[in-house]
């Protein structure tokens, strides 16, 4: 029993390690090409760099954060501090359900509502709204656990000293700041790596300029990887490999921060 499971586990472990390493290594050399981060792609993505995709992804992440962090945080506060227990449980299970909805559904929803009904078109704005619809429940679901973990005595203590609900909430937030940071990083990772919703609502394969209005379409890292792998030949593949390697490195960085905060809390 022990040895069968050990062999199985090492098999799975080595397979995962192989996937991680082969993706990172196969794209790593291209990250050091001159101009990889600062040049525009040229000749059907066979030369140049990934500047517009990188900036596009950053703009998208900025917008998603600007929308979903305030809403998510405020919603989380309601769930853990203010709502009656049953309502809070109900809302949380709704948020959990939304988490399990496949991401393409958010894309299709965003297309119907933001692109077509509201007339934003294929744009940075539609993509960030569609991604935010997905990220907000994700953030709430993760952050509410950390807020709930703050001991009750702390809240009661502050209230009995004459603090208002608002002040006691501030204190709970301060006490759970590590957890909130973890949730933030996980939300960032989720939004950054999601492709299907952006593909449908806001991304274009090639654009000659950076978006300068919210209603301009945008190029992003994940959708460009998809487009290159599916549509372009071998001469452009290096760029997709480079971007894939970059994305995995960024995700590893994000998860490392999460692991570090987790360890800090334990000690």
């Amino acid at each position: 029993m022990r040895w069968t499971l050990r062999i199985l586990s090492y098999g799975v472990f080595l397979a995962m390690l192989f996937v991680l390493v082969s993706i990172v290594v196969s794209g790593l050399p291209y990250l050091f090409r001159p101009g990889f981060f600062t040049a525009w792609p040229k000749r059907a993505m066979s030369e140049g760099g990934i500047f517009p995709m990188l900036v596009g992804s950053l703009m998208l992440m900025g917008l998603v954060f600007a929308i979903s962090i305030p809403v998510g945080l405020v919603g989380t506060i309601f769930l853990s501090e203010l709502a009656p227990r049953r309502l809070s449980m109900l809302l949380q299970s709704l948020a959990a359900t939304m988490n399990s909805v496949p991401s393409i559904v958010y894309g299709v929803f965003g297309l119907a509502l933001f692109c077509v009904k509201l007339g934003f078109g294929t744009s940075l704005l539609s993509a960030s709204l569609a991604l935010s619809t997905m990220s907000i429940p994700f953030f709430m679901n993760s952050a509410v656990e950390f807020l709930r973990a703050v001991p009750k005595e702390l809240r009661e203590g502050v209230i009995s000293l004459g603090a208002s609900k608002f002040q006691s909430t501030l204190m709970v937030l301060r006490a759970s700041r590590n957890g909130i940071l973890t949730s933030l990083m996980l939300t960032l990772g989720r939004a950054f790596s999601e492709t299907a919703p952006i593909l449908v609502t806001g991304a274009v394969f090639y654009s000659t300029k950076l978006p300068d209005k919210l209603t301009d379409p945008v190029m992003t890292l994940p959708t460009s990887i998809y487009a290159i792998v599916m549509n372009l030949g071998e001469r452009s593949q290096w760029m997709a490999r480079g971007m894939a390697s970059l994305m995995v490195l960024i995700m590893i960085f994000i998860y490392s921060v999460v692991q570090l905060t987790r360890r800090n809390k334990r000690e």
Partner: peptide, 16 residues
């Protein structure tokens, strides 16, 4: 390692 692997974006796995 499993946590890192769970962070690989699906499009990158597609490329793989």
């Amino acid at each position: 390692i499993l946590e890192y692997a769970s962070g690989i974006p699906s499009v990158v796995l597609g490329l793989f």
